[in-house]
């Protein structure tokens, strides 16, 4: 790590001001950033600790939820309103990392976490367009088991590792951001960018902006929802494929459905095509498989992750079948 100054912001305005300095970065739980600084992937001269900003979790006027960006992941997962109204979000967070890391990580930080591609993390020895634009991509012909089958580009095939964001994508969450010039709200689906030719730019957040809150609209479909994570180790491992889904049926027919995929794309992947294919269809396993196939029709496998196409479809079908349960 390069020599470092540490600041603790007591307000959003102060954080915005401090973060404007060159080499400055916001610090949440630090579970990703500190590691990347130690690895030399991130060069940071000023850390602005924003954990003293709002961490409240409150019901919003429209019956949704407003979560301060500094709320710890574990606090969100444990919150009674999250558990009862948005079980997929609670489960997604609980599927991520370890209890210790969930206690440290903030939701704002979780949205900003970076890929776990082993070539991205290897500043000393590997080429990576995300870390060093234009240097090349060693993942494409290398170890890419954890990499993307959807939304990748010739320049980058890395995945977004967040579990929480997959659930938030399915929930149409909105991200509240602030800068010196004001505030704006960004739909979660628009927040993360696909890599295209600039994999180093991962979100639409401007350097001068900070995340202040995550808003989750009320969602009837979320009441019957879950998150399933498929991984190489039973716990404490990143997803190969994960599915966040909510489902409501009427007379055995899909009334509403929300689906997010994790582990398959550079961003939390909202499966809008599969959702459209399912609405009004009978809730059968074959319909679920067909909808999953529709979503994955454009999937492009790499040398080491072709199995994910099949795995994503099967997992989605199994999750929706489970959610159909006795409501069928």
């Amino acid at each position: 790590m390069i020599p470092l100054a540490y600041h603790r912001a007591s307000s959003a305005d102060e954080a915005i001001h401090l973060a404007g300095a060159p080499g400055a970065r916001l610090l949440g739980g630090g579970t990703n950033l500190i590691d990347l600084m130690r690895k030399g992937v991130e060069q940071v001269s000023d850390l602005v600790d924003v954990t003293a900003l709002s961490s409240s979790i409150e019901e919003s006027d429209d019956g949704g939820l407003m979560i301060g960006a500094a709320a710890r992941n574990s606090a969100v997962a444990a919150h009674p309103l999250v558990r009862s109204r948005y079980p997929l979000l609670s489960r997604a967070i609980l599927a991520g990392a370890s209890a210790q890391i969930r206690n440290m990580a903030t939701v704002g930080g979780n949205l900003m976490q970076r890929t776990r591609c082993v070539y991205f993390n290897d500043a000393a020895g590997s080429r990576c367009n995300k870390r060093a634009p234009g240097s090349g991509c060693d993942a494409r012909g290398g170890f890419n088991r954890y990499h993307a089958i959807l939304g990748a580009s010739p320049h980058c095939v890395a995945t977004n590792p967040s579990d929480m964001s997959v659930a938030l994508a399915a929930l149409d969450a909105r991200i509240h951001v602030s800068s010196a010039s004001g505030t704006r709200i960004i739909a979660l689906g628009d927040f993360h960018r696909l890599p295209g030719e600039r994999p180093d730019i991962e979100t639409v957040l401007e350097p001068s902006e900070i995340i202040t809150a995550i808003e989750i609209p009320p969602s009837a479909v979320a009441a019957n929802s879950t998150y399933r994570k498929v991984r190489d180790r039973a716990s404490y491992a990143f997803a190969l494929v994960s599915v966040a889904a909510g489902l409501t049926l009427r007379d055995g027919v899909v009334e509403d459905v929300r689906i997010g995929f994790g582990g398959v794309a550079p961003k939390p992947w909202r499966a809008l095509r599969a959702e459209a294919a399912l609405r009004g269809q009978p809730a059968t396993e074959s319909a679920f498989m067909a909808a999953a196939a529709t979503e994955l029709a454009d999937a492009v496998p790499l040398s080491g992750n072709g199995f994910k196409i099949d795995l994503a479809q099967r997992t989605l079908a199994a999750v929706l079948t489970e959610l159909s349960g006795d409501r069928r």
Binding site: Y6, G30, T31, I34, R38, L47, A97, S98, N103, M104
Partner: peptide
């Protein structure tokens, strides 16, 4: 591991278990 991957450095801060390897001492002030 010094990288948040093993839990050997677990301590309890204000009642919560956390990883001391990924916590700057300054953050514990």
């Amino acid at each position: 591991c010094n990288q948040g991957a093993c839990g050997a450095c677990t301590v309890i801060i204000d009642g919560e278990r956390v990883l001391s390897c990924l916590t700057l001492a300054a953050q514990a002030d």
